[in-house]
Design a binder for these strands. Structure first.
Lengths: 270, 270
DNA sequence: GAGGATACTTTACGCCATAAGGAGTTGTGC
DNA sequence: GCACAACTCCTTATGGCGTAAAGTATCCTC
């Protein structure tokens, strides 16, 4: 379950995200830092602690008190460094994405000087797999509403990497925007489904496969005319069956293939 | 900001989702309903009230108290009908999706008896636009984590509709699964972005366009070497410029076109 | 050494979901 | 007609949450 809890100050988030580590003191507006006790914490340390809590115990357990505890402070101590929880989440989000590889600096270049490479498919696939893996390493990121695009440096860097990978396909700008959006949303959504399957299975102490079986059985029991009501779904579920435990991986691979085919068509069609 | 707040009982959600209105009394396990005062509420009424609150005041304002107030009851009265807030959200989610049109019962059939129709693109486009519009009518649905796929009847019906629309493309099952996932995630993700843009603009009392301008200006100010660091992004943003206020619509259309091209390629390639 | 800025703590407020128990209402079986 | 069980709905209470407000201890500047 997810609750939207009021926006937080995106303005402040942006400052913190882009402020960098060079600020003499933690990022509150009018602070000189010439006097007073040395800060014992830092924004970075708080973000790390937050990620540690979320990785270990899930988003539900991520409270300001929990983060403070992990640092040997009270919850209120964090407010010296970070305006509030919403902004902390924004920072955690971008820090998680910062694990993504930057990719090669230069795309392959042909004799005509233009970027060239039949293998933009491989490059985009690599990008997508890296993002997918990152989401699965930090599933809590998927509960931070994508409806709050704060545009941190790591997120933008990831988009830039994708654009670089797509460069050889030479898409017209409009198509390029569409493709980038579709790819990003696809990876995120697919990762969310995978994360949930794993999480639910782990929480109930059952294998992924057994969990799916239990779910299906229960559905069939509750909706007796299931096959009559949803014939195509029923057919699809039984048909061409991959091992259910590999189904998520498969959905990722083939969905991505569909997207890449679409991009290829755009490239060809100009 | 979004918080994952503990799973709730998916088992109970499923019962409520599929139980239908034919249960003699609200859906608690061992109730006969032969005695006691007549129920003044119903699961349906509670779900409607929840949707009304969320539509009018957003997910942040959706509390059990708020829902109870709207029905002239206390928060605790709801627990007679619904096990908890998580399950209520599941019900609200499925009810929102129930607004989607079911689509024609039969796909067009050719002389060979197989479903046929060059216009599966139109059908899928129609499906995607309907889902997109539904999400924008109820943006709070997008904050319910997709990482809790409870599989209500309306959600499954929407998938069935999509499968029916895709039938003429005659995709192999593996590809079909990939395509369905990609389409769904794409619509959801794109709708989330649009919803956020509108929401943020509305909250600050500014047009979408001005909001984007302010955002860009602030980014440029905070990251002085922006263009050097993200050359492709910078280029893409300026290039081929649609009116920024139409950009979301455009991203939806062209992203969908990319997906459809990919599906067409799969159909051709068998 | 005084004074001010700063880090961090304690306390408190108003929310939240919901557990526990009680009051009033309705039907059933005697 | 009456006791009782079933049921709805309420009040109260618990333990969480984010964070405002105010206090204390630390350190630098003058």
């Amino acid at each position: 379950m997810v609750v939207y809890a009021g926006q937080g100050d995106a303005h402040r988030s942006l400052s913190l995200l882009w402020g960098g580590p060079d600020q003499p003191r933690p990022g509150r507006p009018g602070r000189t830092g010439r006097t007073g006790p040395k800060p014992g914490l830092s924004v970075d340390a708080i973000v790390s602690a937050g990620i540690a809590v979320a990785d270990a115990e899930g988003m539900a357990a991520l409270s300001m008190r929990a983060v403070g505890d992990r640092l040997g402070r009270t919850a209120m101590a964090l407010y010296t460094y970070v305006p509030g929880k919403a902004e902390l989440l924004d920072l955690m989000h971008d820090r998680a994405l910062a694990e993504l590889p930057a990719g090669p600096d230069e795309p392959p270049v042909g004799p005509d000087g233009l970027p060239v490479g039949p293998d933009w498919r491989a490059a985009v696939t690599g990008w997508a797999e890296a993002l997918y893996a990152c989401y699965l390493r930090h599933p809590w990121v998927l509960q931070i509403s994508q409806a709050r695009p704060v545009l941190g440096p790591a997120e933008l860097a990831a988009m830039e990497t994708l654009l670089r990978a797509l460069q050889p396909a030479a898409l017209p700008p409009q198509r390029l925007r569409g493709a980038v959006g579709a790819l990003w949303q696809f990876v995120r959504g697919t990762a969310a489904v995978t994360a949930e399957t794993r999480g639910a299975a782990a929480a109930t102490g059952v294998t992924d496969e057994d969990w799916w079986l239990a779910r299906s059985a229960r559905l069939a029991e509750l909706a007796p005319h299931f096959t009559a009501r949803f014939p195509l779904l029923t057919a699809l579920q039984s048909e061409g069956g991959a091992d259910p435990r590999e189904r998520d991986q498969e959905a990722f691979r083939t969905g991505l293939a569909v997207l890449l085919d679409g991009i290829a068509a755009s490239a060809a069609g100009g």
